[in-house]
Design a protein around this nucleic acid. Structure first.
Lengths: 190, 190, 190, 190
DNA sequence: CATGAATGAGATTTCATTCAT
DNA sequence: GATGAATGAAATCTCATTCAT
């Protein structure tokens, strides 16, 4: 088995365990079992230490997530439409790749680095820029873009929480509700 | 020392440790040290096991939180004003008793019970009812009350996250932003 | 069992294991077995980590050794007689408390601290001073005191090595040989 | 690459690692890295097990050392002169090939075989013979040749220790001191 | 010959919990 | 009630060795 494939296998198992049982219980033992490995030594063989594995979990999911969202917002014209697309993309990712998103957020929370949280940055930076652009164009009203960005991101995390107990949630409805909510909250009132 | 006082001392120490270092690192050893106890045996003496201690952490903070919010929303007239008061109360609690709120949410996340999460319930139940009442009275537009409630709660958690890195945040501004946001998002448009 | 007694028991077991099997094989497991403990956790309970245990081994034996030698050299008059007493004391300690001395030297070699080796210092400092005093008094010839001190100490370590394979060595003979050797090597020739 | 060259490369790397970090930390991993090998498997391919590698380390250095000393003592006439040459050769080897000597002694100490230590034998055998020959010729006084041999060998090990912290030691001085020391200690007094 | 993935044992350390005093 | 020593499980990490390619 190739190095790359094995690392991916381990990262996938880690994602599954973290999403299912939480970061605290994601020991090498459980991850190895989930991956069907014969020993935790194999994880240590492929990752220098636990932090390296967890960093790779974050890196992998974050790249995936970023690409996913960008692909769905890139060619959209106008701030309001972009915001709608952004929210829809987030909801879609949260449902389609729920375990990945949950695992990434768990790791980011449990292992805060020294500097700013890269996951949080990735979530907020582009979004706040989008909002500010909309304000400059006069499409959005004059709110605090950072607060609004955090509210939007947090609403997506709320969906993650709901999906835990209600996996059959109607996502189209949820998307529509959030889109309307933040459309009303951001648009310049006549 | 009375039984009750001792339990409170331990719970307070647990809250402090969890908020400062996270649930994962909140071992009996660290909690005992924080409380100035001479032995972790004392914790085991007063609590059947770790889960019991953590349950009491949740119970204590949740009661405190519920009372705090109720006291600030009870005598307010009208759904819109109640919603504003609710948001303001949440922001206030999140800043004044940040460690308590953080600890409670950490425990709830790390040790999910079998049934529905009581913390989540407490956050959402009353809020959703408030929103539905406003809809019945015609003050609020026709949104999904559960989704809106979750968005409001999640926005408060976003504030908690922001407070971790920006403890000197201007709370009045934050409150104002959130109040306006959800006022626009909920009100019946003319 | 009292803290102090338990620590002593563990240190003694560590000394025995190190002397018998070498520092490299002196794992907590073997030490616990030697001491008749039920678990290595007990060692960790009494010593913060392995280095702490080993430091205590060195500290204990070194204090013992220093006291032993001082008691046998203190009230001796004249450099030549003091040197003879010093050598005799070293040989005696090396045979009576062979395991202690071996263990101390093993640890000192395996875990070199940042600064100068305290064991080496203890061995050489007083001895070199003694030699220099003898030179000032005209009893000793004009050699390099540091080189001579090291040679004397090394000769004692040679005895330790010999004792490993020949435990029934005639110590009186050995002492006599070393005393004569260094007497001739140090005395001012007529 | 030829079998022999590969083995030599590995032995050299082992010597370097052992001298620099001690036997305890001389794992196959570190040795492979030092040698620039891509896998520890290569070491296992060329040596049946770790002991075999270490035995070869000892064998290699010992042959080198023996040849070195013999070359410098062979054509010297007279026991006293031979002793001087022996000491000088030991000091020279200890400084010129310090890592080799240190590594050999480390291995011999850490992995004592069942029978007599071949390293010790090699050090002492010829030396004691030399001393006894001098006694028979009447040039040396009547000491215990084994004790004297051990003292001489030990003095050289003392130099090794000193070189660790004082690599710029003046070796000519050191040689002179030791030569004089043992000249006085061995010669027949008038 | 060489590679590098895999294995399983063993190391130190942390921890919740028990229990005699 | 309180203390603190003791226990044994579990965690991460290192290592020599094996083996398919």
């Amino acid at each position: 088995m190739t190095e790359q494939a094995r690392r991916k296998q381990i990262v996938d198992a880690a994602v599954a365990v973290i999403a299912a049982e939480g970061y605290a219980k994601a020991s090498f033992g459980r991850i190895a079992k989930q991956a069907g490995l014969s020993s935790t030594g194999l994880i240590s063989y492929h990752f220098a230490n636990k932090r390296e594995l967890m960093d790779e979990v974050v890196r992998t999911v974050l790249a995936d997530f970023t690409e996913f969202v960008l692909a769905r917002t890139d060619d959209v014209a106008g701030p309001a439409a972009q915001l709608r697309a952004f929210i829809a993309a987030n909801v879609e990712f949260a449902s389609e790749r729920r375990t990945h998103l949950v695992a990434m957020l768990e790791v980011a929370r449990a292992e805060p680095g020294d500097g700013p949280d890269p996951v949080l940055e990735a979530d907020l930076r582009g979004l706040a820029d989008l909002l500010r652009a909309g304000q400059r164009l006069g499409e959005f009203r004059d709110f605090d873009a950072d607060v609004m960005a955090m509210a939007i991101r947090s609403a997506r995390d709320g969906l993650l929480l709901k999906l835990r107990t209600e996996p059959d949630l109607d996502l189209d409805v949820y998307t529509g509700e959030l889109v309307t909510l933040f459309d009303l909250a951001t648009r310049r009132t006549p």
